[in-house]
């Protein structure tokens, strides 16, 4: 027990090392949160463009651009994308690493969100679409009031999973020397050489956040299920 106390002291208390964890966690949370927002924005936009093309044949050029985007993002590793964003795209700008990470992970997530949302939109019966149009709603209104809310309910588990994956994927931020949670733990490990305690701590923190996210989604799903008794 004394040994545990000493190790704990060495890893987290001495030299205020706990700050690598808390500051790293804060970076991880910020990157995940804003990347998720970008991912949702891009994802819904791309999904609506793609399903509009699928349903009506309109927006051919935007659809083509979306397809190129999806192919590139889904066809290359996220670490490589992160490196390219930071060292190539933003090379000549002196930008914040957190910002670079948000852009990289947001662009990456958008591609996966897009395909999830598109599958949700395409899963809604055409009759719903026709009913909306026959009342007099235009295409966008039908999407917003009728199709997206139903699609959203169907895709919620997949979407939540995507954001859980996103949270975990941000752990490669160390590749651009961004001190996120994982990198913070790794820094401590480099000082104290106590791999076990530090890495398990880091893993536990990820696990707790993911469990919290899962619990939140379960509650949301239960609320949305009100309409199908």
């Amino acid at each position: 027990m004394d040994n545990f106390k000493l190790r704990f002291y060495n890893n987290f208390i001495a030299d205020d090392r706990w700050r690598y964890i808390t500051e790293g966690l804060w970076v991880t949370i910020r990157v995940t949160f804003f990347a998720a927002l970008i991912g949702i924005a891009i994802g819904f936009l791309v999904a609506i463009i793609r399903s509009t093309y699928d349903k009506t044949g309109r927006l051919k050029l935007p659809d083509f651009i979306c397809k190129v985007y999806l192919t590139i993002i889904r066809g290359t590793p996220v670490v490589v994308q992160l490196l390219i964003i930071y060292f190539v795209v933003f090379a000549s700008f002196n930008i914040d690493k957190v910002f670079a990470a948000i852009v990289a992970f947001g662009l990456n997530s958008g591609a996966y969100v897009a395909e999830i949302v598109r599958s949700g939109i395409m899963s809604i019966d055409d009759g719903q679409f026709e009913a909306g149009r026959s009342i007099g709603f235009n295409y966008v209104q039908t999407m917003v009031y009728i199709i997206i809310p139903q699609a959203f309910k169907n895709i919620l588990p997949a979407l939540a999973n995507e954001f859980i994956v996103l949270l975990k994927e941000t752990s490669v931020s160390g590749f651009i020397a961004l001190n996120d949670l994982t990198k913070g733990g790794d820094v401590i490990r480099g000082r104290t050489f106590d791999s076990f305690m530090v890495l398990i701590t880091v893993a536990l923190i990820y696990l707790i956040i993911v469990m919290g996210m899962t619990a939140g989604v379960t509650r949301l799903e239960r609320r949305l299920r009100n309409s199908d008794h």
Binding site: D125, G127, Q128, E130, A131, G132, S134, I146, Q150, S227
Partner: peptide, 12 residues
């Protein structure tokens, strides 16, 4: 106004 064979009420 249009009425469909499969009702097409908005389930949500």
């Amino acid at each position: 106004g249009m009425v469909f064979q499969h009702f097409n009420l908005f389930p949500h």
